[in-house]
Design a protein around this nucleic acid. Structure first.
Lengths: 244, 244
DNA sequence: CGTTAGTTTGATGGTCCTCAAGCACTGTGG
DNA sequence: CCACAGTGCTTGAGGACCATCAAACTAACG
């Protein structure tokens, strides 16, 4: 089986652990129940209890929290290869909502199947938990960005992180990537207004660093961006101690 | 054994799961290796790999990330009953630093002991992972606060959350709590300058909502604060689905 | 061809930062 | 005992960054 035939999740995990044929097979079997969801319609509402998680195979999803005053904060995006609602299956009710950014394809994973796979394939369990832990590290980095970076660095950092994540599953590179997000998504992610997002994007474009336009992000000066954003991909790349 | 004799961690977990005598004993045994650390000296540096975690039994610790420009973002505080570095033991190198806010007492937990306890006491494992998941929910809430709340609501929310957490381990209430943090800590937590923190605190005090002074937080109008901050403690209180 | 969603730009103002200075308290050493 | 430094708190003045309001423009779509 060639790498191109694998699911994005398999690609992602394989970048960090050498998975055995058995483990690969179990992973592919988790992808049986294919589902589609249309853009914009909320999949899981905050506070809801779920007995299933999803593995995203195509499209983008955002997870967010709504506040009483109507403002929204996007906590994270899920791209192909990412889990949706893993934590809410394993431990607690979901504390945020999920909404597809575009029409998506996902595999529904029942709690029982997941626990079975974990019990019989501890290395696979570790790999998946490693991915969950990486997601958490991204949230922390996001927190740091909103708290201590100005709008320009925040945007640069965000685009670089997305680029790295997508490159890992083969749909992005240091040159750029396709990006279905609107400037409103960026605003709700970065804690800015949509108007200001627009101005910052123009500024980055006019500095020759990066262009965000027509659903595509183009890195013109990747190193310059890294320097502007103080971007250190260690939190995305590092291998877990149990994954030897 | 009376509740007062239990460790703060035991108190916290007992609020959500009825632990058996065996589980209580295992939990207490994890507290054997007592250690002290002095205020201000960094315990774990970001990027460091650790083979041990700590259970905090007295004092406060903050976990933070430093940026290249010298600014600091505090991600979370640990109060008695909280774990330090649990994730870095289980999965990956630590991605932030830890520093005691005051002199602290903690129990060192070796990775092997923890894994042993997990294997033989799955309910205990679930309870501890529930606590870890709760920590993550707090980080998400923190992110929302910095991204979408103004300085006053951010401060109010933070103080309310701390109050709830401390009440759970018996060192705080709706009336207030002792708090060793400086205004600089608050600033680095909330993504504000220390000067602005001072102004916001004055504003909250003069509105008769809350006083932060001389190492003590006093809630004058708890309900008013909750309303100002749009504080919903669900993310702290909810019981996980596996904890029946 | 009107409607809607998304982008772009300008004008104005508020929130919060930075710089600066003064004060209170504590601990230290001469 | 007192000078002095260090830490933390407080307040003022000025300005930067970013929000809000408003309006025009484009593209997609029924």
């Amino acid at each position: 089986m060639k790498s191109a035939e694998h699911s994005p999740l398999t690609r992602k995990l394989s970048a960090f652990v050498a998975l055995s044929d058995v483990e690969l097979a179990v992973l592919e079997r988790l992808h049986q129940r294919r589902r589609s969801f249309v853009a914009g319609r909320e999949m899981v509402h905050q506070g809801q209890t779920t007995q299933a998680a999803y593995i995203l195979s195509a499209g983008w999803v955002c997870s967010y929290k709504l506040q009483a005053d109507g403002t929204r904060q996007i906590v994270d995006f899920q791209v192909p290869g990412d889990f949706l609602g893993l934590r809410s299956v394993l431990l607690r009710t979901s504390d945020h909502s999920f909404e597809p950014v575009v029409d998506i394809e996902a595999a529904k994973v029942m709690k029982s199947d997941l626990l079975d796979a974990f019990v019989h394939n501890p290395r696979l369990a570790t790999a998946i938990l490693w991915a969950a832990s990486r997601d958490e590290a991204m949230v922390v980095e996001h927190l740091v960005g909103i708290g201590r970076r100005d709008a320009e660095a925040r945007m640069a950092h965000f685009l670089l992180e997305l680029g790295s994540r997508l490159a890992l599953v083969g749909i992005g590179s240091k040159e750029g990537f396709d990006c279905p997000l609107t400037q409103y998504h960026l605003a709700d992610t970065l804690g800015l207004s949509a108007v200001h997002v627009n101005r910052i994007l123009r500024q980055l474009r006019e500095s020759g660093l990066v262009t965000f336009r027509d659903g595509h992000v183009t890195f013109h000066d990747h190193r310059g961006l890294v320097s502007l954003a103080d971007f250190d991909p260690a939190y995305l790349d590092q291998t877990g101690p149990l994954l030897k």
